[in-house]
Design a protein around this nucleic acid. Sequence first.
DNA 1: GTCTATATAATGATAGAC
DNA 2: GTCTATCATTATATAGAC
Lengths: 244, 244
Amino acid sequence: MVNMRSARPEDATAAARIRDAAIARFGAHGYERTTVREIARDAGVSAALVIHHYGSKDGLREACDEWLVAELIEEKAMTAGPAIAETMQRWLDDTEQFQHFIDYFATMLAAGGEGGNRLFDRLLRETATMLEHGVEAGAMHPSSDPEIRALMITINGLAPLLLREQLTRVLGTPFGSAAAARRMTLPTLELYTDGLYTDSKVLDAARAALEGTIDTGKTVRSDKGAGNPNQDPDPPHPSSDISP
Amino acid sequence: MVNMRSARPEDATAAARIRDAAIARFGAHGYERTTVREIARDAGVSAALVIHHYGSKDGLREACDEWLVAELIEEKAMTAGPAIAETMQRWLDDTEQFQHFIDYFATMLAAGGEGGNRLFDRLLRETATMLEHGVEAGAMHPSSDPEIRALMITINGLAPLLLREQLTRVLGTPFGSAAAARRMTLPTLELYTDGLYTDSKVLDAARAALEGTIDTGKTVRSDKGAGNPNQDPDPPHPSSDISP
DNA sequence: GTCTATATAATGATAGAC
DNA sequence: GTCTATCATTATATAGAC
């Protein structure tokens, strides 16, 4: 019902201003730490009006979710091509203006609610399609398990977003800034081009171990980690890998 | 002050039981959504006692942070070697028992407070050290920017943990399960061994573009993404990459 | 549509007995 | 150390006037 399209300006309808304010607050400080009164104040209306329009605080949240998903996905509809990725890129190219969206987007994904799931699924599908095309074109290696590879690459792609606070802190430059992008481009592309390991010893060992797993059914749990460079074989191995 | 070591059992001191209950609740539902009364009930004590021992709800949170960081890091002290990674692995090998710790750990990192920062820094250092050793031993490729590579690999390693809900949903098997580990091992190791791209076109293009950047100072923002496979050059490219 | 009260229900924290 | 009872505050949500 309440769904008036809005621009940033102050002259938008009250319902739209409320939703914009909510997205900003929810994204910046999280859902529970944000009060209806704060949102109302930001939007320049009374708290009662917020409830009047959206029924409840949770109703407002759902409206925010839906609006953002629509903004991110359905805008470009089914015009083929990676819709989300392009929108995201537009946001990242102007972090000044779209910071709120980026933060809310990250919050949604981390919270993993209704909207977050839809978004993730959509991203996953886009990534899988892109990988298929890449393999067909001969630009990318085929995978022994394309579905899971797409999943891992999607997750890895989202990681800097979810850990943007840590990233910003270590990098010294704000997430989304040109400087940060410049710094991260090469190392990431190097990894995606040459990999990390100089030979296939670790991979071969894992393959052998997993073969065994099929027989024994569950014995080879000793191969620790889960597929990260954090494997046992040989001396040094990434320790950051927490993921299974 | 309050710091009695505790085991899981029901017979631990009240202060320890309170802290254990708090870690479980905070990890499962977040800090703000958890009430002191809930924690008290779980621990089998009154709400007043919780405050009596920890001063305030926030004091309790800090105590939880400190305790978990100590449990994860300082236990093995400076005995060299990847202390955190090993502890994490022990947790993942028995998700049944350590689920609470894993969840709280993820919450800390995402929230990015005092404790989360310390943990992340520690993980980053462990990863960087491991990569250095790997390069020295000839097992891993050198990097044009080892510091940032370590950062990216650390972040990628944490990604499945932060997105464990999505991962579980898509995978169909719970995060930390042997089945999930089995499924993820090969695709991840393949990526870390062979990379994604079959040639270095994308990488070379980025190198050239970044050379230009140094001169112009900021022109080459057109190289979009940030170092993910999400680059422009050529047809298909990962769309999941949101990271800059 | 929008406001000013106000109701209602939690919550974090305190006081003081045992 | 631990409890019961209670306070003070704050939050969401409602009622009803304009």
